[in-house]
């Protein structure tokens, strides 16, 4: 393959050149290529990072009347924080990372000496297609929307909207959006808050749960004194083991 043979016509003529074998050794070329491949493999980023788009409310003071008050029964307030030990230090998991915890309450905050409607949960995802932790709470509150979207997804998988994959996708997206924003269905309104110590990761996880549970109405808000008081009260009533 890598050699060129020069064959002469058989009969030797006087002064004819000797039969030559030109053999090119490709080993150094392969060596060099391998080095370059290694370099490119190590320098490339195959996985591009993703983005999560969010819209924050304006900072300006909104007139009390203009505020679109959420129905009390639909409201869920989630406060992300790190779990504490009894001495107030952040609790660490086996990898040495702080444990993310979510405090939540439905409707209005209630806090008295005896009562506190704050509850705590973790981000633990699914297990065998069963929602757990925070996801279960949100899932249970948004059942109607999720049920309809599941039906829609079955149709999408069967390509019922169109045989063209792109058109099928876009019709599915549009219908799903319409379901998420359908005001005739009871849907939750989630307010996400974070304590100053909360890890950035936990806020993203909370936003992520909105996407997973197809919740269209949510916003990020600043934590207020009532919320902090409730967390302190909750910790006092449920001391860490």
């Amino acid at each position: 393959m890598a050699q060129i043979e020069q064959s002469d016509g058989g009969k030797k003529k006087k002064g004819a050149q000797k039969k030559m074998h030109i053999h090119v050794d490709f080993t150094p070329m392969v060596d060099m290529n391998m080095l370059l491949i290694t370099f490119f493999m190590l320098c490339t980023t195959m996985i591009k990072s993703q983005t999560l788009q969010i819209t924050l409310p304006t900072n300006e003071k909104v007139e009390e009347q203009e505020m679109n008050k959420a129905k009390e029964s639909e409201g869920i307030t989630m406060i992300v924080d790190v779990e504490r030990n009894a001495d107030g230090t952040a609790k660490k998991d086996e990898n040495g990372d702080p444990v993310n915890i979510v405090y939540y309450y439905f409707g209005k905050p209630t806090i008295t000496a005896e009562e506190n409607n704050l509850q705590a949960e973790y981000f633990i995802g699914d297990e065998n297609n069963l929602q757990r932790g925070v996801r279960k709470i949100l899932h249970d509150r948004n059942k109607e929307v999720l049920k309809r979207i599941d039906e829609l997804k079955a149709k999408w998988a069967a390509k019922e909207f169109s045989s063209n994959a792109d058109i099928n996708d876009s019709i599915y997206q549009a219908r799903a959006k319409a379901i998420r924003n359908d005001s005739t269905i009871e849907r939750p309104v989630v307010v996400i808050k974070a304590t100053p110590e909360a890890r950035w990761e936990s806020l993203i996880s909370a936003l992520d749960e909105m996407q997973i549970n197809q919740i269209s109405r949510y916003q990020i808000d600043n934590i207020n004194q009532v919320d902090s008081a409730m967390i302190i009260d909750y910790r006092a009533k449920h001391p860490a083991k």
Binding site: I47, S49, Q50, T51, L52, Q53, I54, T55, L56, P57, T58, N59, I204, L207
Partner: peptide, 16 residues
């Protein structure tokens, strides 16, 4: 600060 600047819409970089 972004809110104050009325840049309320933005994206957050995440991994998949």
């Amino acid at each position: 600060n972004l809110q104050t600047l009325k840049m309320n819409r933005f994206s957050i970089m995440t991994a998949l």
